[in-house]
Nucleic acid binder design. Structure first.
Length: 288
DNA sequence: CACCATGTTCCTTG
DNA sequence: CCAAGGAACATGGT
């Protein structure tokens, strides 16, 4: 679920459900996800506070709140890690097994659930300061991107995952963007030509924008019983797997490349899988 | 038992 | 301080 497009689709669904709501009580079931905040701190700050807005930055969810006591605005940062989910449900529904934090609104409540607890819901918003440009905004420019890439010898695929360089690209869309740009994932970042940088810059934007569009259009599943319409929860049961279908190379090793029919390959880079077409994304020939 | 998983952070080494 | 490379985090699926 959680790369930039999935988080974007999530906040679009969630914003109208949380905006204007007052938090009556807070329960922290797993301290690790609120670090470095403490349960005491978070409970204190959130009780009585009102959620004024919910936005996205990279893969982070940015909750804007207003304190009950001081009237001051403050920020809470959410991240889904690998397996996190955030949704609003009736208070009467049973909590998921891996509920990490619950915010009570009254009849409804906001639930952050995370099987592996790699995600976050914290008052520490420092992580935002390090993030690179937002890829779908004007601050992401091919010239800057190319200049940045000049200082790294690591493979371009690995650098696409570096949130300091560009915010929001993860393991799936890194492979997808490189495929679209016809660039080898193994090419050293500082060796990209200006033309390749331009193609990659464009491909990143296209891949992410397309995923948001499709994520907003495909039949989504709402809530645990798939009926009460309260939250985004992946795709509806019984519908085709558009999520996998729309990906051209990710998790498709051995299948024919959609462009040239050569078998897609899987390699490991920085301990993560990379998928690519060895023919379409061949490294440039060395002259000698 | 083995390996794999949409992510980030921390540690060591150079 | 910078960059590379790897392990660690925690749980579950195959």
């Amino acid at each position: 679920m959680p790369e930039l497009p999935e988080v974007e689709v999530l906040i679009r669904h969630l914003r109208p459900l949380v905006q204007g709501r007052t938090i009556r009580a807070v329960t922290v079931y797993r301290d690790r996800v609120i670090a470095p905040s403490t349960a005491r701190q978070i409970t204190q700050a959130l009780r009585g506070a009102r959620i004024t807005d919910l936005t996205r930055r990279g893969k982070y969810l940015v909750f804007q709140l207003r304190s009950a006591r001081s009237g001051r605005p403050f920020t809470m940062l959410g991240h889904l890690g690998m397996t996190g989910r955030m949704f609003v449900a009736r208070r009467t529904r049973p909590l998921p097994k891996h509920a990490a934090v619950v915010l009570e609104f009254g009849r409804d409540r906001f639930i952050y659930e995370d099987q592996r607890y790699f995600g976050r819901l914290t008052l520490d918003a420092a992580a935002l300061e390090r993030l690179g440009p937002e890829p779908l905004s004007d601050e992401f420019r091919a010239e800057d991107f190319g200049r940045l890439l000049k200082s790294f010898s690591r493979a371009i695929k690995v650098k696409l995952l570096d949130q300091d360089l560009i915010a929001g690209v993860g393991n799936i869309y890194a492979s997808e963007a490189l495929f679209r740009a016809r660039i080898s994932p193994r090419l050293a970042a500082h060796r990209l030509t200006l033309g390749q940088v331009r193609r990659l810059h464009r491909a990143i934007r296209e891949v992410l924008a397309l995923a948001i569009r499709q994520g907003s259009t495909i039949p989504l599943s709402f809530a645990g019983d798939h009926r009460d319409g309260l939250f985004y929860f992946g795709q509806a049961p019984g519908t085709p797997d558009f999520y996998a279908e729309r990906l051209r190379v990710y998790d498709r090793q051995g299948q024919p490349c959609p462009r040239c029919a050569a078998p897609i390959r899987r390699i490991v880079q920085a301990a993560r899988s990379t998928f690519f077409c060895p023919a379409c994304q061949a490294p440039a020939k060395r002259l000698r």
